[in-house]
Design a protein around this nucleic acid. Sequence first.
DNA 1: GTTCTAGAAC
DNA 2: GTTCTAGAAC
Length: 195
Amino acid sequence: MPKRIVTTSENVSHKKQKTFHWSSGLVQAVQNPELLVLSDDLVYVIKDKYPKSQCHFLIICKKDIGSLSDVKIEDIDLLKHMNEMAEKMKKSNDEYRSFNVGYHAEPSMSRLHLHVISDDMDSSHLKTKKHWNSFTTEFFISSEVVIENLIKNKKVILPSKEECRKFLELPLKCHKCDFKPKNMPDLKKHIVNHC
DNA sequence: GTTCTAGAAC
DNA sequence: GTTCTAGAAC
């Protein structure tokens, strides 16, 4: 995929060009009408560009918060609002039986974002063990748990870098039963045919 | 976050 | 020989 080049104001200078880094992709994505679902004073809701289930939204705050590690106690109402928006998205997409709502412990992309993901985990974009484990292990922290964590600790206490790495490297396991696939293709066949 | 691909695993 | 994973990307 070619890097997206954008020019500065009015394109006056040919020298002043900037290439966005991939980690700011979400802040770009909210400007994409094909991805943006809705927004209000506090958040954007977008369709994940590479959904890891049949239905996968991101609730992205408008406030410039990088990630959970930057969240302050004063942001508690914002996190509650993001959770309420997630509930709204669940209700308006209830043809998908159930959803998981939570944050990645160590996200790759900045701007705090809450995942609302149907629990089928059936998607052509779900390709790697890291993808799988990021939604099916403790690397994925439920929205309610994050809110309780913030209230109790006045900040969000997260797993260490080493713990995160450990979660992502856990052996593959079906999220609905005890099946232990030998590899990703094995797992993907299992979740569509058996679970 | 994804893409690409070398070399491991089969 | 083909499938699959895991690390680099300036």
